[in-house]
Write a protein that binds this DNA or RNA. Structure first.
Lengths: 226, 226
DNA sequence: ACCTGAACACCGTTCAAGT
DNA sequence: ACCTGAACACCGTTCAAGT
C-alpha cells in the first residue's frame, strides 16, 4: 500500500494543549522549587490546570516522568560542555558541569544512576571515555579508568542529591559542618586519630573542591599506568 | 536530689515483647527478602503480630527505622574488618566489606549517604582515614585523599543500591549487559568512538572487580603525592 | 508502660465518561 | 485523540481506647 500523507496532528492543537514537553517542564519547576517530595500528579495537574489522569495520556508513569525530566536537564548540561579542550580538562569540565547541575537540581542525582540506555547517559559515558582515548591511556587500562571515573562522578552526584534530600535548602550548612567537626574533635584520640586531626579541615571544606580534588587523584592514578 | 535505684524494666518484660532490636531485625528481614518497597508499617506489624501503632512506641518514624537497620548492618561489617593489615590492604578490606554488604542488603546503599553523625559512619570514616596516616600520606594531601576515597566508596555503594532497586533480583544481569553492549556496538563510530570500542568489555565486566580497580587507581593517585 | 487498630490525610494509578 | 475527575488500593502517622 502506498504511504498516505499523514496530517500533522500536533500543529493543529491549541497552543496551551498538554504535551510531554509541557508536562516535563512543569515537573522540573516543581522539583526545583519544592523538592522531590512535592512532585505529585495532583500538584502537577493543578499547575497545568488539568486532571491528574490527563497526564497519563502523555507519560507512562512517575518514573517515566522523572526519567524525561532528568534527560532534559542532562542534555542541557552536555550541550554546554567545552568540546575539544585538553582531554583532562574536558573530563573536568564535564564532571563539574554535572556537579553543578545536580547542585541546582538535586533530584537529578537521584535519577542519574543505573539507566545506561538513556540517551543523555550515552553522552556522559562517551564524554568521559573519549578524552581517555585522546590521552593515550593504554588499551588494557582503558575500561578500568573509564569505569573509575564514571563510578566516581555519578556516585558523588548521587551523594549530593541524598544530602540535599536530607536537609532541605533552609538548613545552615556551615552550622551543620561545625557541629560534626566538634563531635569529631571530642572523639577518643586513641580510637579515632584521623577524624580528630581532620575536624578543622572538615568544618571548612567545600564539596565542589573536594569533588574536583578526588577527580584529579583518579586522573593522577590513571597517569601512573604505563 | 540523690539518684534512686531504678528498676530495670526490660528484664521484667515477657520474652516476645516488642523492642527496637526486634523491630529492626524484622525490618531487615523484610528489606532483604522483599526489597525496600515491601517495608511498610503494616507489613512489619503483621510480621511482629502487633498493631502498626505499637511500632511507633519504639521507633520515631520510618527514617529512624531505616537508620537503625543500616547501623546494625554496618556495625556487623565493621566488626569483621581485618584490623592491622597493611594500610592499603586495610582500606581495600573495608571497601570490599561495604561493597559486599550492600550487594546482599541493597537498601543499605540508599541509606548510607549523608548521615555523618551515625556511629557506624564514624567507624567507616576512621577506617578509611586511619590507614592513610599509617601510609604516611603528606599532611596537605590527607584530607583530599580521604575525601576522594570516602566519596568513591559511598558513591559506588549508592549506585549499586540504585541498580538493585531498578531491576529486581529476578532480572538476568548478563542479558541486560549484553543488550546494552549491543546498543553500544551499533553507535556511530564518529560520535561514539569510545563506547564502540568498550562494548565487549562492558558486556563482560564485573561490578566488584571494577569497584576494586577504581579504588586502586585512587590509591595510585594518592601515591603520586610526595 | 506498652499495645491495639480504626481513622486521617495523603499517595500513584485506573477508568468510565465526556469533548 | 485527548481530557476530566471520581474511585481504588494503597501509604505513613496519629490517637483514643484498652491492658
Amino acid at each position: 500500500m502506498v504511504a498516505m500523507a499523514t496530517k500533522i496532528q500536533k500543529s493543529e492543537r491549541r497552543p496551551d494543549a498538554l504535551s510531554k514537553e509541557r508536562i516535563v517542564g512543569a515537573a522540573i519547576e516543581i522539583l526545583d522549587t519544592d523538592g522531590e517530595g512535592a512532585l505529585t500528579f495532583r500538584a502537577l495537574a493543578a499547575r497545568l490546570a488539568t486532571g491528574s489522569g490527563a497526564i497519563y495520556w502523555h507519560v507512562a508513569d512517575k518514573s517515566d516522568l522523572l526519567a524525561a525530566a532528568t534527560d532534559a536537564v542532562i542534555a542541557r548540561v552536555m550541550a554546554a560542555i567545552d568540546r575539544g579542550a585538553e582531554p583532562r580538562e574536558a573530563i573536568r569540565s564535564l564532571a563539574l558541569g554535572l556537579f553543578d547541575a545536580i547542585d541546582t537540581h538535586p533530584w537529578v542525582g537521584t535519577q542519574l544512576t543505573g539507566s545506561p540506555w538513556q540517551p543523555a547517559m550515552l553522552l556522559i559515558f562517551e564524554g568521559i571515555g573519549g578524552p581517555l582515548l585522546v590521552l593515550g591511556v593504554p588499551e588494557r587500562a582503558l575500561f578500568d579508568s573509564w569505569s573509575a571515573l564514571v563510578n566516581y562522578i555519578l556516585g558523588v552526584a548521587g551523594q549530593n542529591a541524598a544530602n540535599a534530600r536530607l536537609h532541605g535548602q533552609e538548613t545552615d550548612r556551615s552550622a551543620g559542618l561545625a557541629s560534626v567537626a566538634e563531635q569529631w574533635a571530642q572523639l577518643d584520640p586513641a580510637r579515632y586519630p584521623f577524624l580528630r586531626r581532620m575536624a578543622t579541615q572538615f568544618s571548612e571544606h567545600d564539596d565542589r573542591e573536594q569533588f574536583l580534588a578526588g577527580l584529579d587523584l583518579i586522573l593522577a592514578g590513571i597517569g601512573t599506568v604505563r
